[in-house]
Design a binder for these strands. Structure first.
Lengths: 189, 189
DNA sequence: TGTACATCAGTGAACGCGCGTTCACTGATGTAC
DNA sequence: TGTACATCAGTGAACGCGCGTTCACTGATGTAC
């Protein structure tokens, strides 16, 4: 257990700044984020975030990497639990709604270092988890088929429209049920 | 024809600033847009954009309104021309790709005045054009069914993933063909 | 176990910059007579 | 048709602010002996 009360050697500056970033993004989006604001939120000196993450792109790279990891975990968990492709899609929407700040960053690669090695690994893992293996996780294909892209597009679009408030009131209650109803039209056929 | 060379009374400051905004958004996205930068691009004084549009939200409201108008036109034209729902979806993707700057603003209502009367009219017209009337344009429904939302989600998601470079190389050639192949999986059934 | 020293994580004052906003102004256009 | 005046679109100098970056520093931790 690190000594958090010490003025120097924060203990987990990285975590504190990332958490502050999640809050800040929830309030105003990722593009207008300022390192000085994150420092204020995390109660560290204004230079600390830049010292740790180099710059804003570095910070958002770390955040996106974490996001892709969590997304991959969620999708794999849904597949393991239900064995249904439809529920993997519902988990995708669930992730976007539950982790909106992460989701907003992950799909704006202009904001971060899209060729960072750790990020690429996490992103590939998430993409791979999106491909439902007919014979189980071990023999799933590596490339995305048109059907994979259609399914991805549908859940990604639904999540985006849900998040930005474009959907009419009937659809803005529980995202799981709405996602299941909408995605079911494609996934069952 | 307005006298464009006159230093005062630009002639069409509104158009010039909106066009500058489209360029600036294409380069760096809508969130980091600065009114002073637009003034530089449009060759007007730094205070002119704010004088004309009040603030950044006012500018982006005008831009989003124009975008929803163009989108509605495109969708209705596709329906009239082909009579096929699939081609309305393809036109949606085509619009997003051809007018990326507009598309990026339109679905980020936090950036503009989402309850502006003119904007609401344009947005409703686009939403309405998205609902394919089985018996022609005059007797289409007003509410979005689950099938409508599925179709909208699919083309919106496909356009988003295409624009942010998430799709694998096989899909990043001509968006029309790729969109037709992917959307066909849902629309034909 | 005790001391010396290197390392490393974070500090905080200072800087220059671009931003939005204010405000007194200027010059073109429209209207009244 | 000609003149006077009000209006309105845009100007440009000035302001204060928050930002990222730099840099000499400080204090905790780890390692060598």
């Amino acid at each position: 257990v690190p000594s958090v009360n010490s003025a120097y050697h924060h203990g987990d500056l990285r975590r504190a700044v990332l958490d502050a970033a999640v809050d800040a993004i929830a309030e105003a989006g990722p593009a207008t984020l300022s390192l000085r604001d994150l420092a204020r939120r995390a109660n560290v000196s204004h230079a600390a975030p830049a010292y740790h993450f180099v710059d804003k792109a570095g910070l958002l790279t770390a955040l996106a990497t974490e996001g892709f990891g969590t997304l991959a975990d969620s999708l794999l968990e849904a597949e393991r639990r239900t064995g249904q492709f439809l529920e993997v899609g519902v988990a995708y929407v669930r992730f976007a709604v539950d982790h909106q700040s992460y989701f907003e960053v992950m799909f704006r690669p202009d904001l971060y270092n899209a060729d960072d090695p750790e990020l690429r690994v996490a992103r590939e893992r998430a993409r791979h988890a999106l491909i439902f293996g007919a014979g189980g996780a071990e023999n799933r294909a590596t490339d995305l088929s048109a059907a994979n892209v259609a399914a991805w597009s549908l859940v990604h679009g639904f999540a985006s429209l849900w998040l930005n408030g474009s959907l009419p009131p009937e659809f803005s209650g529980d995202p799981d049920d709405a996602a299941r109803a909408v995605a079911g039209l494609l996934f069952r056929s």
